[in-house]
Amino acid sequence: MLVLTAQHPQAATAIPRQYVHKAAQSEVLLTGWQALGDDSFLITAQWPRAHSYYGAFDGRHDPMLLAETVRQAVPLLSHLGYDVPFGHRQIWDHLDWTIDPGAMSCAMVPAEIELHVRCSEVTRRAGRLAALRMDIELTRDGMPLGTASTRFTSQAPNLYTRLRGRYADLEQAIARCVPLAPPASARRVGRTGFADVVLSPSDTVHRFQLRIDLNHPVLFDHPVDHAPGMLLLEAARQAAHEILHPHRALITGMESAFHRYVEFDAPCWIESEVLGTGPDGTAVRVTASQHGHEVFTATVVAS
Protein backbone atom coordinates (compact mmCIF):
# COMPACT_ATOMS: atom_id res chain seq x y z
CA MET A 1 0.00 0.00 0.00
CA LEU A 2 1.38 3.41 -0.97
CA VAL A 3 1.31 5.80 1.98
CA LEU A 4 1.20 9.17 0.26
CA THR A 5 1.14 11.16 3.48
CA ALA A 6 4.70 10.04 4.12
CA GLN A 7 5.94 10.93 0.66
CA HIS A 8 8.82 13.41 0.66
CA PRO A 9 7.70 16.57 -1.14
CA GLN A 10 10.76 16.53 -3.40
CA ALA A 11 10.21 12.97 -4.60
CA ALA A 12 10.62 12.84 -8.37
CA THR A 13 7.50 10.74 -8.92
CA ALA A 14 3.97 11.61 -9.94
CA ILE A 15 0.91 11.49 -7.74
CA PRO A 16 -1.37 8.60 -8.83
CA ARG A 17 -3.85 9.89 -11.37
CA GLN A 18 -6.92 9.02 -9.28
CA TYR A 19 -6.02 11.68 -6.71
CA VAL A 20 -6.14 14.50 -9.29
CA HIS A 21 -9.12 13.12 -11.24
CA LYS A 22 -7.24 12.29 -14.42
CA ALA A 23 -7.55 9.18 -16.55
CA ALA A 24 -4.11 9.56 -18.14
CA GLN A 25 -1.13 9.36 -15.81
CA SER A 26 0.85 11.40 -18.35
CA GLU A 27 -1.40 14.40 -17.62
CA VAL A 28 -0.55 14.47 -13.89
CA LEU A 29 1.57 17.53 -13.04
CA LEU A 30 1.80 17.02 -9.27
CA THR A 31 4.73 15.06 -7.85
CA GLY A 32 4.33 15.18 -4.06
CA TRP A 33 2.65 16.73 -1.06
CA GLN A 34 3.18 17.33 2.64
CA ALA A 35 1.00 18.60 5.48
CA LEU A 36 2.83 21.42 7.26
CA GLY A 37 0.25 22.06 9.98
CA ASP A 38 -3.44 22.71 10.42
CA ASP A 39 -4.82 23.62 6.98
CA SER A 40 -1.33 24.30 5.60
CA PHE A 41 0.31 22.21 2.88
CA LEU A 42 3.24 22.03 0.50
CA ILE A 43 2.62 20.54 -2.94
CA THR A 44 5.28 19.97 -5.57
CA ALA A 45 4.71 19.86 -9.31
CA GLN A 46 6.72 19.54 -12.48
CA TRP A 47 5.98 21.39 -15.70
CA PRO A 48 7.25 19.50 -18.75
CA ARG A 49 9.34 21.20 -21.41
CA ALA A 50 6.66 20.16 -23.92
CA HIS A 51 2.96 19.46 -23.40
CA SER A 52 0.46 18.17 -25.93
CA TYR A 53 -1.97 21.03 -25.22
CA TYR A 54 -0.36 23.56 -22.89
CA GLY A 55 2.77 23.85 -25.00
CA ALA A 56 5.53 26.41 -24.74
CA PHE A 57 5.49 29.49 -26.99
CA ASP A 58 8.28 32.00 -27.63
CA GLY A 59 10.43 30.14 -25.13
CA ARG A 60 7.92 30.46 -22.28
CA HIS A 61 5.76 27.89 -20.50
CA ASP A 62 2.02 28.20 -21.11
CA PRO A 63 0.53 30.17 -18.18
CA MET A 64 -2.51 27.87 -18.23
CA LEU A 65 -0.25 25.25 -16.67
CA LEU A 66 -0.65 27.26 -13.47
CA ALA A 67 -4.44 26.94 -13.64
CA GLU A 68 -4.24 23.20 -14.32
CA THR A 69 -1.74 22.73 -11.49
CA VAL A 70 -4.14 24.44 -9.07
CA ARG A 71 -7.04 22.39 -10.45
CA GLN A 72 -5.15 19.21 -9.67
CA ALA A 73 -4.36 20.45 -6.16
CA VAL A 74 -8.10 20.76 -5.41
CA PRO A 75 -8.93 17.03 -5.50
CA LEU A 76 -5.51 16.06 -4.14
CA LEU A 77 -5.98 17.99 -0.90
CA SER A 78 -9.66 17.07 -0.75
CA HIS A 79 -8.84 13.36 -0.73
CA LEU A 80 -5.54 13.31 1.16
CA GLY A 81 -5.73 16.43 3.31
CA TYR A 82 -9.42 16.32 4.25
CA ASP A 83 -10.37 12.63 3.82
CA VAL A 84 -12.95 13.17 1.07
CA PRO A 85 -13.92 9.77 -0.39
CA PHE A 86 -13.55 9.03 -4.08
CA GLY A 87 -16.80 9.66 -5.93
CA HIS A 88 -17.35 13.08 -4.33
CA ARG A 89 -17.28 16.00 -6.78
CA GLN A 90 -15.27 19.18 -6.30
CA ILE A 91 -17.05 22.11 -7.96
CA TRP A 92 -15.29 25.45 -8.54
CA ASP A 93 -16.86 28.67 -7.27
CA HIS A 94 -14.01 30.90 -8.39
CA LEU A 95 -10.36 30.83 -9.43
CA ASP A 96 -8.10 33.88 -9.49
CA TRP A 97 -4.43 33.75 -10.45
CA THR A 98 -1.50 35.91 -11.50
CA ILE A 99 1.87 34.92 -12.85
CA ASP A 100 5.27 36.61 -13.21
CA PRO A 101 6.17 36.51 -16.94
CA GLY A 102 9.86 36.69 -16.05
CA ALA A 103 9.64 33.33 -14.29
CA MET A 104 8.03 31.50 -17.22
CA SER A 105 11.05 30.87 -19.45
CA CYS A 106 11.67 27.28 -20.55
CA ALA A 107 14.97 25.76 -19.46
CA MET A 108 16.87 22.66 -20.55
CA VAL A 109 15.02 20.64 -17.91
CA PRO A 110 11.38 20.59 -16.69
CA ALA A 111 10.37 23.35 -14.28
CA GLU A 112 10.19 22.32 -10.61
CA ILE A 113 7.24 24.08 -8.96
CA GLU A 114 6.19 24.40 -5.32
CA LEU A 115 2.73 25.38 -4.14
CA HIS A 116 2.55 26.78 -0.61
CA VAL A 117 -1.12 26.32 0.24
CA ARG A 118 -3.12 27.81 3.07
CA CYS A 119 -6.72 26.60 3.42
CA SER A 120 -9.46 28.60 5.16
CA GLU A 121 -13.25 28.96 5.31
CA VAL A 122 -13.40 25.20 5.83
CA THR A 123 -17.02 24.02 5.99
CA ARG A 124 -18.09 20.52 6.95
CA ARG A 125 -21.46 18.79 6.83
CA ALA A 126 -22.11 15.49 8.60
CA GLY A 127 -18.39 15.29 9.32
CA ARG A 128 -17.38 15.59 5.65
CA LEU A 129 -15.74 18.48 3.83
CA ALA A 130 -18.36 20.62 2.11
CA ALA A 131 -16.33 23.65 1.00
CA LEU A 132 -13.03 25.44 1.48
CA ARG A 133 -10.85 28.22 0.16
CA MET A 134 -7.24 27.78 -0.92
CA ASP A 135 -4.70 30.63 -1.09
CA ILE A 136 -1.54 29.62 -2.87
CA GLU A 137 1.91 31.08 -3.40
CA LEU A 138 3.81 29.38 -6.21
CA THR A 139 7.58 29.31 -6.55
CA ARG A 140 9.92 27.96 -9.18
CA ASP A 141 13.32 26.84 -7.98
CA GLY A 142 12.72 28.90 -4.85
CA MET A 143 11.86 32.11 -6.73
CA PRO A 144 8.37 33.69 -6.86
CA LEU A 145 6.30 32.43 -9.78
CA GLY A 146 2.73 33.55 -9.07
CA THR A 147 -0.25 33.45 -6.75
CA ALA A 148 -3.66 31.83 -6.86
CA SER A 149 -6.86 31.80 -4.86
CA THR A 150 -9.75 29.43 -5.30
CA ARG A 151 -12.90 28.32 -3.52
CA PHE A 152 -14.79 25.12 -4.25
CA THR A 153 -17.55 22.95 -2.86
CA SER A 154 -17.35 19.22 -2.31
CA GLN A 155 -20.52 17.30 -3.11
CA ALA A 156 -21.34 13.73 -2.11
CA PRO A 157 -22.73 11.52 -4.92
CA ASN A 158 -26.33 11.66 -3.67
CA LEU A 159 -26.22 15.46 -3.34
CA TYR A 160 -24.63 15.87 -6.76
CA THR A 161 -27.27 13.65 -8.36
CA ARG A 162 -30.07 15.58 -6.67
CA LEU A 163 -28.67 18.95 -7.75
CA ARG A 164 -28.02 17.87 -11.33
CA GLY A 165 -31.40 16.24 -11.88
CA ARG A 166 -31.75 14.78 -15.36
CA TYR A 167 -28.29 16.05 -16.26
CA ALA A 168 -26.69 13.62 -13.79
CA ASP A 169 -27.14 10.76 -16.27
CA LEU A 170 -23.74 10.69 -17.96
CA GLU A 171 -24.77 8.67 -21.00
CA GLN A 172 -27.81 10.85 -21.65
CA ALA A 173 -25.80 14.05 -21.18
CA ILE A 174 -23.26 12.91 -23.76
CA ALA A 175 -25.97 11.74 -26.16
CA ARG A 176 -27.61 15.18 -26.07
CA CYS A 177 -24.40 17.06 -26.88
CA VAL A 178 -24.79 19.69 -29.62
CA PRO A 179 -22.85 18.97 -32.83
CA LEU A 180 -19.25 20.13 -32.82
CA ALA A 181 -19.18 23.59 -34.40
CA PRO A 182 -16.46 24.64 -36.89
CA PRO A 183 -13.39 26.26 -35.30
CA ALA A 184 -12.39 29.88 -35.38
CA SER A 185 -9.03 30.81 -36.87
CA ALA A 186 -6.38 29.09 -34.76
CA ARG A 187 -3.95 31.95 -35.31
CA ARG A 188 -6.41 34.57 -34.07
CA VAL A 189 -7.10 32.72 -30.81
CA GLY A 190 -3.48 31.92 -30.03
CA ARG A 191 -3.47 28.30 -31.16
CA THR A 192 -1.42 26.48 -33.78
CA GLY A 193 -3.97 23.81 -34.78
CA PHE A 194 -7.73 23.81 -35.30
CA ALA A 195 -8.27 20.74 -33.09
CA ASP A 196 -7.29 22.77 -30.02
CA VAL A 197 -9.59 25.73 -30.79
CA VAL A 198 -12.56 25.90 -28.39
CA LEU A 199 -14.39 28.80 -30.07
CA SER A 200 -16.60 28.81 -33.16
CA PRO A 201 -17.35 32.10 -34.95
CA SER A 202 -20.81 33.65 -35.13
CA ASP A 203 -22.32 36.49 -37.17
CA THR A 204 -21.48 38.93 -34.36
CA VAL A 205 -17.98 40.26 -33.82
CA HIS A 206 -16.25 38.95 -30.68
CA ARG A 207 -19.08 36.49 -30.05
CA PHE A 208 -18.42 32.77 -30.32
CA GLN A 209 -20.06 29.45 -29.68
CA LEU A 210 -18.18 27.23 -27.27
CA ARG A 211 -16.84 24.14 -29.06
CA ILE A 212 -17.46 21.04 -26.94
CA ASP A 213 -15.24 18.31 -28.35
CA LEU A 214 -15.91 15.29 -26.16
CA ASN A 215 -13.06 13.45 -27.89
CA HIS A 216 -10.38 15.98 -26.99
CA PRO A 217 -7.74 13.96 -25.11
CA VAL A 218 -6.76 16.74 -22.67
CA LEU A 219 -9.81 18.93 -22.11
CA PHE A 220 -11.98 15.80 -21.90
CA ASP A 221 -9.48 13.42 -20.34
CA HIS A 222 -12.40 11.37 -18.97
CA PRO A 223 -16.20 11.37 -19.47
CA VAL A 224 -18.09 14.13 -17.62
CA ASP A 225 -21.71 15.32 -17.69
CA HIS A 226 -20.98 19.05 -18.13
CA ALA A 227 -18.33 21.33 -19.59
CA PRO A 228 -15.22 21.18 -17.38
CA GLY A 229 -13.82 24.28 -15.76
CA MET A 230 -10.55 24.12 -17.69
CA LEU A 231 -12.51 24.26 -20.96
CA LEU A 232 -14.15 27.51 -19.83
CA LEU A 233 -10.82 28.97 -18.73
CA GLU A 234 -9.34 28.07 -22.11
CA ALA A 235 -12.31 29.71 -23.84
CA ALA A 236 -11.64 32.89 -21.85
CA ARG A 237 -7.97 32.80 -22.79
CA GLN A 238 -8.73 32.27 -26.48
CA ALA A 239 -11.38 35.01 -26.48
CA ALA A 240 -8.83 37.43 -25.01
CA HIS A 241 -6.30 36.51 -27.70
CA GLU A 242 -8.92 37.02 -30.39
CA ILE A 243 -10.04 40.46 -29.31
CA LEU A 244 -6.43 41.64 -28.90
CA HIS A 245 -5.30 40.20 -32.27
CA PRO A 246 -2.95 40.93 -34.04
CA HIS A 247 -1.07 41.74 -30.84
CA ARG A 248 0.41 38.48 -29.56
CA ALA A 249 -0.75 38.75 -25.97
CA LEU A 250 0.90 37.09 -23.00
CA ILE A 251 -1.74 36.16 -20.43
CA THR A 252 -0.50 37.11 -16.96
CA GLY A 253 -3.62 36.65 -14.85
CA MET A 254 -7.27 35.77 -14.68
CA GLU A 255 -10.16 36.29 -12.28
CA SER A 256 -12.93 33.80 -13.00
CA ALA A 257 -16.26 32.84 -11.47
CA PHE A 258 -18.36 29.75 -12.20
CA HIS A 259 -22.04 30.61 -11.79
CA ARG A 260 -23.84 27.59 -13.30
CA TYR A 261 -23.05 24.27 -14.93
CA VAL A 262 -22.50 24.54 -18.68
CA GLU A 263 -24.57 21.79 -20.25
CA PHE A 264 -23.96 19.88 -23.46
CA ASP A 265 -27.47 20.14 -24.88
CA ALA A 266 -27.54 23.80 -25.93
CA PRO A 267 -25.07 26.32 -27.38
CA CYS A 268 -22.95 28.26 -24.90
CA TRP A 269 -22.04 31.74 -26.12
CA ILE A 270 -18.70 33.40 -25.34
CA GLU A 271 -18.48 37.21 -25.62
CA SER A 272 -15.58 39.54 -24.90
CA GLU A 273 -14.85 43.23 -24.48
CA VAL A 274 -11.72 45.22 -23.68
CA LEU A 275 -12.07 47.00 -20.34
CA GLY A 276 -8.93 49.10 -20.61
CA THR A 277 -5.19 49.13 -20.11
CA GLY A 278 -3.42 49.66 -16.80
CA PRO A 279 0.00 49.09 -15.24
CA ASP A 280 -0.52 45.30 -15.22
CA GLY A 281 -1.63 45.12 -18.84
CA THR A 282 -4.87 45.10 -20.83
CA ALA A 283 -7.97 43.69 -19.14
CA VAL A 284 -10.51 41.75 -21.19
CA ARG A 285 -13.92 40.81 -19.82
CA VAL A 286 -15.24 37.45 -21.02
CA THR A 287 -18.80 36.28 -20.39
CA ALA A 288 -20.33 32.89 -21.13
CA SER A 289 -24.11 32.49 -21.35
CA GLN A 290 -26.45 29.57 -21.94
CA HIS A 291 -30.24 29.33 -21.96
CA GLY A 292 -30.29 33.10 -21.41
CA HIS A 293 -28.31 32.88 -18.15
CA GLU A 294 -24.79 34.01 -17.33
CA VAL A 295 -22.89 30.82 -16.53
CA PHE A 296 -19.26 31.91 -16.34
CA THR A 297 -17.34 35.18 -16.22
CA ALA A 298 -13.66 36.02 -16.35
CA THR A 299 -11.41 39.04 -16.46
CA VAL A 300 -8.25 38.17 -18.35
CA VAL A 301 -5.14 40.34 -18.04
CA ALA A 302 -2.67 40.33 -20.91
CA SER A 303 0.58 42.19 -21.57
Score class of each variant (00 low, 15 high):
residue 303 S to F: 00
residue 253 G to L: 08
residue 239 A to G: 08
residue 257 A to N: 09
residue 199 L to T: 04
residue 171 E to L: 15
residue 108 M to W: 05
residue 74 V to Q: 04
residue 284 V to G: 05
residue 159 L to V: 15
residue 7 Q to A: 13
residue 177 C to E: 13
residue 70 V to D: 00
residue 246 P to L: 10
residue 67 A to S: 14
residue 166 R to N: 10
residue 224 V to L: 14
residue 153 T to M: 13
residue 210 L to K: 04
residue 247 H to L: 12
residue 236 A to K: 03
residue 164 R to P: 07
residue 253 G to I: 06
residue 192 T to S: 12
residue 247 H to A: 13
residue 181 A to W: 07
residue 28 V to F: 03
residue 104 M to C: 01
residue 283 A to I: 05
residue 217 P to E: 07
residue 240 A to Q: 01
residue 190 G to H: 08
residue 41 F to L: 05
residue 179 P to R: 10
residue 112 E to T: 08
residue 124 R to Y: 05
residue 249 A to Y: 01
residue 17 R to F: 07
residue 93 D to T: 00
residue 56 A to M: 05
residue 255 E to N: 14
residue 139 T to E: 05
residue 119 C to H: 06
residue 54 Y to I: 01
residue 38 D to F: 03
residue 5 T to D: 14
residue 293 H to C: 10
residue 14 A to R: 12
residue 53 Y to P: 00
residue 102 G to D: 04
residue 282 T to G: 01
residue 67 A to C: 13
residue 24 A to W: 10
residue 222 H to T: 11
residue 235 A to P: 05
residue 118 R to F: 01
residue 55 G to F: 04
residue 11 A to F: 13
residue 11 A to H: 14
residue 229 G to N: 09
residue 76 L to W: 06
residue 109 V to Y: 06
residue 202 S to Q: 12
residue 280 D to E: 14
residue 144 P to K: 02
residue 260 R to N: 11
residue 207 R to A: 11
residue 62 D to F: 08
residue 5 T to W: 11
residue 169 D to Y: 14
residue 6 A to R: 13
residue 267 P to F: 12
residue 104 M to D: 00
residue 117 V to D: 02
residue 227 A to D: 08
residue 121 E to R: 13
residue 41 F to K: 04
residue 151 R to T: 13
residue 262 V to I: 15
residue 31 T to Y: 02
residue 49 R to V: 09
residue 303 S to H: 06
residue 36 L to G: 00
residue 182 P to D: 11
residue 154 S to Y: 02
residue 130 A to E: 02
residue 178 V to P: 07
residue 155 Q to D: 11
residue 77 L to I: 12
residue 101 P to A: 03
residue 302 A to T: 13
residue 89 R to D: 14
residue 71 R to N: 04
residue 213 D to K: 09
residue 92 W to M: 15
residue 234 E to F: 06
residue 70 V to C: 00
residue 144 P to A: 06
residue 242 E to T: 08
residue 159 L to F: 11
residue 54 Y to W: 06
residue 1 M to Y: 10
residue 216 H to L: 03
residue 10 Q to E: 14
residue 225 D to H: 09
residue 69 T to N: 00
residue 120 S to G: 09
residue 141 D to W: 09
residue 124 R to N: 06
residue 141 D to E: 14
residue 7 Q to K: 12
residue 15 I to H: 03
residue 162 R to G: 12
residue 157 P to F: 10
residue 124 R to P: 01
residue 98 T to S: 11
residue 217 P to C: 03
residue 88 H to E: 14
residue 172 Q to K: 15
residue 198 V to A: 04
residue 14 A to T: 09
residue 156 A to P: 09
residue 225 D to A: 12
residue 221 D to L: 05
residue 298 A to T: 13
residue 186 A to C: 09
residue 147 T to Q: 06
residue 72 Q to K: 07
residue 117 V to H: 02
residue 154 S to Q: 10
residue 297 T to S: 11
residue 266 A to F: 15
residue 216 H to I: 07
residue 197 V to G: 04
residue 87 G to R: 06
residue 279 P to K: 14
residue 56 A to W: 02
residue 196 D to I: 04
residue 248 R to D: 11
residue 188 R to E: 15
residue 302 A to M: 08
residue 256 S to H: 10
residue 190 G to F: 07
residue 158 N to P: 11
residue 147 T to C: 05
residue 122 V to K: 00
residue 204 T to H: 05
residue 87 G to L: 03
residue 85 P to V: 05
residue 279 P to C: 08
residue 11 A to S: 15
residue 278 G to S: 12
residue 193 G to V: 11
residue 173 A to C: 14
residue 127 G to N: 05
residue 222 H to D: 10
residue 36 L to R: 09
